[in-house]
């Protein structure tokens, strides 16, 4: 039971990624595909953050040793646990995945913006944002490419 609960997040993240990927590969609508892509990328972030969680940890912002917050944090915890896994008497969550995912989120929004801008231009050029309709129009054009020139 405990194993399932403590691995639930990985399974949930896997399903979320699949939901995003499924939308990307199966939907014909360009905008919907971008939404799927955004979900796929966001879920990747959730995987990293799961890896960086430390039980009873706090956000990686240094807590002053003398502050009341530190006392409050320490009150709930097993001193042996704090001594083994804490830094200067406080247990923190791992900051590295947070940094990586900050980067990934920003990269995600950059991709989203460029993708949607292209989708808007596709709509202007083809009159549609449905991939299958655009494909038909493109095929037609390929078949007669150059003949109008």
């Amino acid at each position: 039971m405990s194993f399932i609960l403590l691995h639930f997040n990985y399974v949930a993240v896997a399903i979320l990624m699949m939901a995003g990927l499924f939308v990307v590969v199966s939907s014909s609508n360009l905008i919907k595909r971008m939404i799927g892509l955004a979900i796929f990328q966001t879920s990747t972030g959730l995987l990293y953050i799961s890896l960086g969680k430390v039980s009873s940890g706090t956000a990686a912002i240094t807590v002053d040793a003398a502050s009341p917050e530190k006392q409050a944090l320490a009150n709930h915890l097993d001193p042996a646990y704090v001594a083994q896994y804490g830094v200067a008497g406080v247990v923190y969550s791992n900051p590295l995945p947070h940094v990586l995912i900050l980067t990934a989120i920003v990269v995600g929004v950059a991709t989203l913006a460029v993708g949607l801008a292209i989708a808007v231009r596709v709509r202007e050029a083809f009159g549609s944002v449905e991939a299958d309709e655009i494909e038909v129009l493109s095929r037609l054009e390929s078949a007669q490419a150059g003949s109008q020139a």
């Binding site: 430390v54 995945p97 989120i105």
Partner: peptide
């Protein structure tokens, strides 16, 4: 999950900017 910075970013970028851009696109 103690990822305060990431949560902040996700809130402003994911829920904020992305939504505006998506709405603009549709």
């Amino acid at each position: 999950m103690d990822a305060a910075d990431v949560a902040f970013t996700e809130a402003v970028i994911g829920a904020g900017v992305s939504t505006i851009v998506l709405l603009g696109a549709i």
